[in-house]
Design a protein around this nucleic acid. Structure first.
Length: 859
RNA sequence: GGGCGUUUAGCUCAGCAGGUUAGAGCACUGCCCUUACAAGGCAGCGGUCGAGGGUUCGAGUCCCUCAGCGCCCACCA
């Protein structure tokens, strides 16, 4: 039997510089370590002033993360890391947006189920092993359970990717937009809106997606260019003369309620007040005047249908016209004709048809009846679609929930002005959206996987729904599902019985929930203490395309609920563009999965590319930049190795903190670095992480190429102990600052190097300040010393290159001509210049124009 | 139709308050195993800064006009 050896206590590794430093394994090593040490754990005992809180965008989990996500989430992470190092306690939760249509669709296909809100909850339900056809009907709670089950896997995958990328999220604070806390917050928020008169129910024309069979909000619209056709149709005029109108939607003829022309249009003035007769259906409709009718569009007179487009809605409302609707929720011409239309043969020709066939048939009929004038003329025109949909939207009349926005547009604009936008011009998008609002915010959806509206209605003795008698739950009951829960004062038997109650069947739109992400993440409904410490938050990072949805709706909710902005800053990120300058789509991005990029280039390298994309600017996808990032990370390792191995060579008695920086060249480098710290700090405070990175990187390369080369010999002791001590002291000071400056961008490699010689994590180390370098540099430090030395060294290198000589080649004599002050600066660094350039004799001559004459020893 | 952004080397981009011969990286060319680094280093080639006007001693940088590209918004029969 093999002896069981007691595992030896894990030896704490000596702080040391590896012989051959590399990037391999750093992500696993430090990822595990950060998790074990709780490096990014949020300390909720801190006060609001000490906390920096981030309203993280919850990615939609019914898909996969793509490079665009990696891009923008990296931006936020660099900012989070900066503020953490500045001493703020960073509240950086991660949310998953699992609520909504995309998840519903996946669940339906994956499990072979469909949701029927009328069914009771079945606690023992298990989905069939194979998706059956037709799908199994399940209750809403059962359906929601399946949605949650399916999204859990995605959420794990997403978390793994984020950890791999090095996001400094506190993974104990994740939330989901369908979880109980989110439901509680959503329902509580809704009840408050209702109590405050900000939410209301109305039967009104709304945009309707016939595939999803749900109402759609203005913010979810998308214009798409389609080829349609103008059809010229003759209406019967009052005096028998036909009135010609142009329409792209002749199938809506039976829904026609009026004709309309501009009030000043002389051609039609005589007709206003009289009636015309629709072709085929023979319905008499009034001829009216309205300013929105454009004389030069079509024939100058249009037919108003209920409803062909949003202009029809305006005409219908302002001209107080009747509704003559013909389209059902499924997108087909309904069975019964509307009032005023005969259920005769013409109606039978179109009823039950979808729009396209109905249009085709109507055109045939018009042609047969002689009411089609000329042939249809093809036209390209913009048609409104649900952004996630495939069919043109219809406008249907239905009962929906709205949140008032139109009555406080100006206050919302003020909020937008107070919010600090990064970059500032993004405010314009918010303002044009608010100015363009044409209806209140429609928040109800005729779907299932969303937060239910927390209310029921009384039923009349005849079984009719008494919409004005809503039954609301006490807040302590939240979250409730009215499809299974019972209102106070009723029993389950009363459901859907005359005299009883019925549950509100609709759910809230996904934006109605995610408009509360600050409240959800801050646990507003569950943990008021926490909420008071994080809200209003510091920053909302997000992409520009959802300013009109997510950003806008969050501002609305915070305004109504808290009378404040939800955050002080909005950091807007751009898109990732593929090489064709198009937005990188998921289909194209699939060839380049984020995990694949991380495998190939490493997290620090991918982050480097992402962080080089400036705030708000669309950025080209560029693997070349990742290679550059990787090279930078390797350079950090090697340069650090040089600096620190010098450190360990020295006798143990050498105390780093005691030594002074006495050499002017070292002092010059330190004051240059102090200036960099100032610049990088300012850039970060203005959310310009890209500038901070660019400046730091640029300094770092100069540091390696020039300063390191110049002081190398002296650091080894070529010029005596004091010079060596000064160089080594300056090198370690510089390395410490540079690592901290790079830490937000390259968290893995900087942490690795930090661990070679420092205690604790670099990510909780203090962000560098200029004084820590200006102090040791002393009051007489002159940056010119390094500048001139570097230029002279460059000229010497150039001479060697031209002579095809090695950089080690000896220079017997070098003559530097320059102005007196610059020569004076050079004189103080001459020892290092000669050392680095292997110059035997350095001669200076005063001159107006800089030049260096180099004589190689062997030449 | 209104608005915003953008247009700088072959490619990707800096150039923040106007100031000496316009910068970086990639790519390309040449040289160099130099004791931190050859998955490296050093150096070089390459641009009349979208077009045209204007302000200024001086403009890539400010103003006007125009064009290309992209985006946002709009009551597109």
């Amino acid at each position: 039997m093999p002896s069981t050896s007691i595992p030896e206590k894990q030896a704490i590794p000596e702080k040391q510089v590896p012989e051959k430093p590399g990037l391999e394994g750093l992500e696993q090593k430090w990822g595990d370590r950060w998790e074990a040490d709780g490096t990014y754990r949020f300390d909720r005992s801190k006060s609001r002033a000490e906390i920096y809180s981030i309203d993280t965008p919850p990615p939609t989990v019914s898909g996969s993360l793509h490079v665009g996500h990696v891009f923008s989430y990296t931006h936020t992470d660099t900012v989070a890391r900066f503020h953490r190092m500045r001493g703020r306690e960073v509240f950086y939760p991660m949310g998953w947006d699992d609520n909504g249509l995309p998840t519903e669709r996946r669940v339906q296909n994956f499990f072979g189920v469909r949701c029927d809100p009328a069914l009771p909850y079945d606690p023992g339900f298990t989905p069939p092993a194979k998706p059956p056809s037709p799908p199994v009907a399940v209750s809403r709670p059962n359906f929601v359970e399946l949605c949650i089950r399916l999204t859990l896997d995605d959420e794990k995958t997403f978390e793994d990717l984020w950890r791999r990328l090095g996001l400094s999220v506190d993974w104990d604070m994740t939330y989901t937009t369908i979880g109980p806390e989110a439901q509680r917050a959503s329902q509580r928020g809704f009840l408050h809106l209702l109590a405050g008169g900000h939410a209301y129910q109305a039967v009104a024309p709304t945009l309707w997606d016939v595939d999803f069979q749900t109402a759609i909000a203005q913010a979810e619209l998308e214009d798409r260019e389609l080829t349609g056709a103008y059809h010229r149709i003759g209406f019967g005029g009052p005096d028998g003369t036909p009135i010609e109108i142009d329409t792209t939607r002749p199938e809506l003829l039976p829904a026609c309620v009026a004709l309309v022309a501009h009030p000043d249009d002389e051609r039609f003035k005589p007709l206003f007040g009289s009636e015309a007769t629709t072709p085929l259906f023979g319905v008499r409709v009034p001829i009216l005047a309205h300013r929105l009718a454009e004389p030069d569009k079509g024939t100058g007179i249009a037919m108003i249908c209920t409803f062909g487009d949003v202009t029809d809605v305006i005409w219908w409302r302002e001209l107080k016209l009747p509704v003559r609707s013909i389209v059902g929720p499924d997108g087909r011409i309904q069975a019964e004709p509307p009032e005023g239309v005969s259920p005769g043969p013409m109606w039978h020709e179109v009823t039950g048809k979808k729009m396209e066939p109905a249009r085709a048939r109507t055109v045939e009929l018009l042609r047969e009846s002689g009411d089609l004038i000329g042939e249809p003329r093809p036209v390209k025109h913009a048609v409104k679609f649900f952004e996630k949909g495939n069919k043109p939207l219809e406008i249907l009349t239905s009962r929906q929930w709205f949140v008032r926005t139109l009555n406080h547009q100006s206050r919302l604009l003020e909020r937008g002005k107070t919010l600090r936008w990064h970059p500032p011009y993004m405010r314009g998008r918010f303002e044009s959206w608010v100015n363009g609002l044409n209806s209140d915010w429609l928040i109800s959806r005729q779907r299932f996987f969303g937060v239910p509206f927390p209310l029921w209605y009384r039923l009349g003795d005849d079984g009719s729904v008494l919409y004005d008698q809503a039954l609301l739950p006490d807040e302590s009951r939240l979250p409730v599902d009215p499809s299974t829960d019972v209102p106070d004062g009723f029993t389950a038997e009363g459901r859907d019985r005359p005299g009883g109650f019925t549950g509100e069947p609709d759910v809230m739109d996904t934006w109605a929930t995610s408009s509360l992400t600050p409240q959800i993440a801050g646990r507003w409904a569950d943990d008021p203490d926490l909420f008071s410490r994080v809200f209003p938050m510091d920053v909302r990072p997000q992409a520009h395309e959802i300013i009109r949805t997510w950003l806008f709706s969050t501002v609305v909710r915070s305004d109504l609920e808290h009378d404040s902005l939800p955050w002080a800053d909005a950091a807007i990120s751009g898109w990732v563009l593929d090489p064709d300058r198009k937005k990188m789509s998921k289909s194209k991005g699939n060839a380049l999965t984020p995990i694949g990029l991380l495998d190939q280039h490493g997290a620090d390298a991918v982050r480097y590319w992402a962080a080089s994309g400036r705030p708000g600017v669309d950025t080209a996808f560029d693997e070349g930049q990742m290679k550059v990032g990787r090279r930078l990370a390797i350079k950090v390792l090697n340069a650090s190795k040089f600096v620190l191995s010098r450190l360990s060579d020295r006798p143990a008695t050498a105390d780093e903190d005691e030594g002074g920086v006495t050499t002017p060249l070292d002092q010059a480098m330190l004051v240059g670095l102090a200036a960099l710290i100032e610049e990088a700090t300012n850039a970060f405070e203005g959310y310009d992480y890209a500038r901070a990175l660019e400046r730091t990187e640029s300094f770092f390369w100069g540091f390696c190429d020039d300063y390191l080369e110049l002081v190398k010999g002296r650091a080894y002791g070529n010029q005596g102990d004091e010079g060596a001590a000064s160089a080594n002291r300056a090198l370690t000071l510089a390395l410490s600052s540079l690592l901290r400056l790079f830490a937000p961008f390259l968290p893995f490699v900087t942490e690795e190097v930090w661990s070679w010689w420092q205690d604790g994590t670099v990510h909780r180390a203090a962000w560098p300040v200029p004084s820590e370098l200006r102090g040791p540099a002393g009051p007489d430090a002159d940056p010119l010393v390094l500048e001139v030395a570097a230029v002279v060294l460059g000229e010497v290198r150039k001479a060697k290159t031209i002579a095809k000589a090695s950089m080690r080649a000896e220079v017997s004599r070098a003559v530097v001509r320059d102005t007196a002050p610059r020569l004076a600066a050079l004189a103080t660094g001459a020892g290092d210049v000669c050392d680095a350039g292997r110059i035997a004799e350095l001669v200076t001559e005063e001159a107006d124009i800089f030049s260096v004459e180099v004589v190689l020893a062997s030449a």
